[in-house]
Design a protein around this nucleic acid. Sequence first.
DNA 1: CTGAAAGCGCTAACAC
DNA 2: GTGTTAGCGCTTTCAG
Lengths: 329, 329
Amino acid sequence: MVTIADVAQAAGVSISTVSYVMSGKRAISQETRDRVEKAIDNLGFSPHAGARSLASRSTNVIGLQAPLRTGVDVHVVMQIVTGVVTQARKHGYDILLLASDDSKALQRAAKGSMVDALLVMDVESDDPRIDTLSGLDHPSVLIGLPQGRRAIPCVDFDFEAAGWLAVDRLVALGHRRLALIGSPLEVMARHTSYADRLARGFLAACEANGVVGTVHACPSTVEAVSTVADVMTEDPTITGFFVHNEGALPHVAATIAQRGRQRGDELAILALCPDDVARSVPGLADSIAVPAEAIGAAATDMICEILANGTKPAVRLLPPALTGDATAS
Amino acid sequence: MVTIADVAQAAGVSISTVSYVMSGKRAISQETRDRVEKAIDNLGFSPHAGARSLASRSTNVIGLQAPLRTGVDVHVVMQIVTGVVTQARKHGYDILLLASDDSKALQRAAKGSMVDALLVMDVESDDPRIDTLSGLDHPSVLIGLPQGRRAIPCVDFDFEAAGWLAVDRLVALGHRRLALIGSPLEVMARHTSYADRLARGFLAACEANGVVGTVHACPSTVEAVSTVADVMTEDPTITGFFVHNEGALPHVAATIAQRGRQRGDELAILALCPDDVARSVPGLADSIAVPAEAIGAAATDMICEILANGTKPAVRLLPPALTGDATAS
DNA sequence: CTGAAAGCGCTAACAC
DNA sequence: GTGTTAGCGCTTTCAG
């Protein structure tokens, strides 16, 4: 293994000079800098992460606890993780992936000085991990917006605003009777709050717009289709649909479109899902993008800012935006 | 921060004794051990990972490079990662998640002594990362089976055997004309080899069984349905379908089933996908599980064994198995 | 069975 | 603008 001492010797400078060339923490003459950098390249030197963290008391690693189980929107999780990893690298951090749902894992990583900070996804409102995080010396940011004391900074999508936006759009398209086809009950049962927030925004916007809106959870992804069919049968006056349900979206969209054709009605389907998913589903009037990767990036930015400046921001909600009806087929 | 010295003092022993109590690398009297362990608990001591890796020249971290982009079977990737993380913890390792598709990232992690070993997913046959890995001092294992020199140990699902198994099953069900509905072209274009292996096994098995088999790639997930429709129209004698295409599976299955009903034929659909996905798709005759989590776990076991014993196994392919027709609706 | 002490490779005072 | 050096917290000889 090539060490900083090897580099120093090769460049004919002291160890500390090499260190300072790398960190930029003190002025170095151009000449010296060049020699050192050349030596680093020639020898293929990379500083030993452990030695570094021992001496500097920081690891340049962020711990990420992501939900790896099924029963979450795998697509969205993946994109958030991508955003985190990508953005973290831009700030010079690496990501340690922690086993999900485990307070112990957070403590282990923090107390063992394996990470400088923690990013935690999929936190429920009464999640014990919130207390765990509060008790740690390490800064942390939640991806999601649990209800409660808000002791830890959060980053999430503004689902409530998305509900409003969806209604505004459907109303603008001329629809006066709307239905929100929501998450599977499984998701509703966990108290991650986003399904609630979406429904709240949707219903409030309906009221504000003076239109009729109803919210429908699906028993499961498979049964989403029959749920929609039931809704359409029970109230044939509904013409605007807002669908938020990853796996079921294509099926639901197809069902709605087919029935619309049979009835000869002009139905509109608005989806809430990642952009690329929307593009693969035909027949959507429009879609609201869940900016999953941006959420991951924003959370990472926030934790890095806390690490750098010691600031402690509170909650950051990313605003919804319509994709444009480019997705119409 | 509480250090090993604090523990030693609290327990009234030397630092080295505390270290040996933790590592178990030398005999300790029960009495001393008890005292030390109590001190560790009382003080809430966790050894500093960096200090440890500096002194011991090992990190207890495995680097994992997973494909975070879209255009892969997100479900399967997620499960493999889950298998890796879970199994790694059982061996006392943590997982550093590396930015995808980046030879540099592998080198950075290895040369910076951030990891003890590397696990790399989604390697293509002429992937430059294979050479990178060969040039490293750190052991590595590929998840997947690229063609070529096989310089690095691999773990993967036995897609070829899965092709055989599918045909055997369909033939046993009485079908003599079979079609493999394969991956999107996008996947075929990348040379990850599994689509090829599946097709090879499928065709060889058809020949061995004396039945007719054809292979059909889908232009995209969306167009999978029309692809199937075309296949069924062009050759109405096909009655056995083997579907391997994550996003499209439910749509394809629905299409096949519907057409079968129209024609009054007894069609059979066999799927290749994770168990839980199969359960959510109605109308399958049976399914072959992609044991994604087991693949991740097996790869982790392999790398840990290499780390522990210095053994260098070559290729490990996990055998396919039928789920049983419990998935029939 | 236990202790003392020499590093591991780096950072960051403290010198000049 | 550069060099010297004292740790950072742990593992592991080497002694007993």
